[in-house]
Design a protein around this nucleic acid. Structure first.
Lengths: 162, 162
DNA sequence: TCCCATGTGTTATGAGATAACATAACTGGG
DNA sequence: CCCAGTTATGTTATCTCATAACACATGGGA
C-alpha cells in the first residue's frame, strides 16, 4: 500500500461505528445467528466488533494485535477462525488485493460483494455489482461461475486533487 | 485451493505453450520491449518462459523452484522483480485470489484483465471484461477508478459433472 | 449422563513477499 | 575510450500472512 504522501487526505472521512450504532450492528448479527443456529461466540463477536469500529480494512495481524481488551494479542488461529466464520455468514469480506478484511455493509445475505478502494486513505466502499454482462460471457464460454471478486482501485471523493 | 477430489478433470485440457509457439510468444515480447526501450533481460525472459509453458497459474515459489535450468532455484527477489516487470509491461498478470501469476493471453497493451478460474483443474482463462455499468456507478459516487480486478471462480467446461 | 459435534487454546511451521545493501551491466556525454 | 549516472542483478536476512496438528472445553441431543 502507498498511502498518504500522494494526496491530501482528510482524516475521518470514512468513520467506523461506535456507541449505539455499534451495538445495533452487533445485535443484528446476533439475531441473524440465532435464526440460523449459528453461534456468535466471544472471539467471533470480538473480531466483528473490531471490524465494525475500524475506519478502513483491517489486516489479520491488526486484529490479532487489537484483540485483547488489555493489550494482549490473540493467537493467529483465533482470529483467522473468526474471520472464516464471519465470511461464511456474510458478516465480513476479505479484500484480496489488500490482504485485509471489512465488515459487510450491505444488509442482504448471499449477495455478491464488490469494492471501491481508495489508494490514498485506504477506505473501502462496498457496493452491489452488476455482473450481467460478465456472467453471460462466462456462460457462453461454458463456465459455471460460483463466486466473483471485483475490486476497483482509485481515489475516493475526499482524496481527489481537483 | 481445493482441487482434484471434487471432480473428474481431464488433464491437458488447458495446455501451455512449447516449441515454435513458445518461441513466437517470446519473440513478440522481445519486439514490444524493443519498441518501448525496455529490456527483456535473462531472468525476466526466463520467468515469462516458465509462465508461458505452464498449464495453469504458477505460484511465485513454483517459479523460484523451476527457475534454474539444472534444478537450482532462484532467489525470491529475482523472481518477484521479474514478475513486477512483466506485470508493468502487461506480459503477465497476478491473480489475487490464488496468489499466482499467468502470462497475458490478450494481445492489447493496457487492457483490463479479468479471469475465469476453475476450482477443479486450476486453469485460469483470461477475458476482456465489460465494466461500463460498474465504472458508471463508481463515477456517480465520485470515485476515480484507476484499476479493476475481476476474478470469477467456478468450473470450466472440461470439469463439469453433467 | 454420556456422546458427539463444534469451537477454542496453543505450539509450531509453512507460504508469500520485501528491505537493504553490494555488485554488475548498459547508456549517453565528454 | 572512459567515466558517470542509471538501471538491473545478486545476496542475505527478515517480515507479513496463513494454516497444520493436537489437546482441551463446551453445549445440545439420544
Amino acid at each position: 500500500m502507498h498511502m498518504g504522501a500522494e494526496c491530501h487526505h482528510e482524516d475521518g472521512a470514512h468513520p467506523g461505528l461506535s456507541g449505539a450504532d455499534l451495538a445495533v450492528a452487533l445485535g443484528h448479527a446476533e439475531t441473524r445467528c440465532a435464526q440460523t443456529q449459528e453461534r456468535l461466540t466471544t472471539p467471533r463477536r470480538r473480531v466483528l466488533e473490531l471490524l465494525l469500529e475500524a475506519d478502513a480494512p483491517l489486516k489479520a495481524y491488526d486484529l490479532i494485535a487489537a484483540f485483547g481488551t488489555h493489550g494482549e494479542p490473540a493467537k493467529p488461529p483465533t482470529v483467522y477462525r473468526a474471520l472464516e466464520f464471519l465470511e461464511r455468514l456474510g458478516f465480513a469480506h476479505r479484500i484480496e488485493s489488500l490482504n485485509a478484511y471489512v465488515p459487510c455493509r450491505i444488509d442482504a445475505a448471499g449477495h455478491r460483494a464488490a469494492f471501491l478502494i481508495c489508494d490514498c486513505c485506504g477506505a473501502a466502499e462496498e457496493f452491489e455489482p452488476d455482473f450481467e454482462g460478465q456472467l453471460a460471457a462466462a456462460a457462453a464460454s461454458g463456465y459455471q461461475v460460483r463466486a466473483v471478486t471485483l475490486e476497483a482501485r482509485g481515489l475516493c471523493p475526499a482524496c481527489q486533487p481537483g
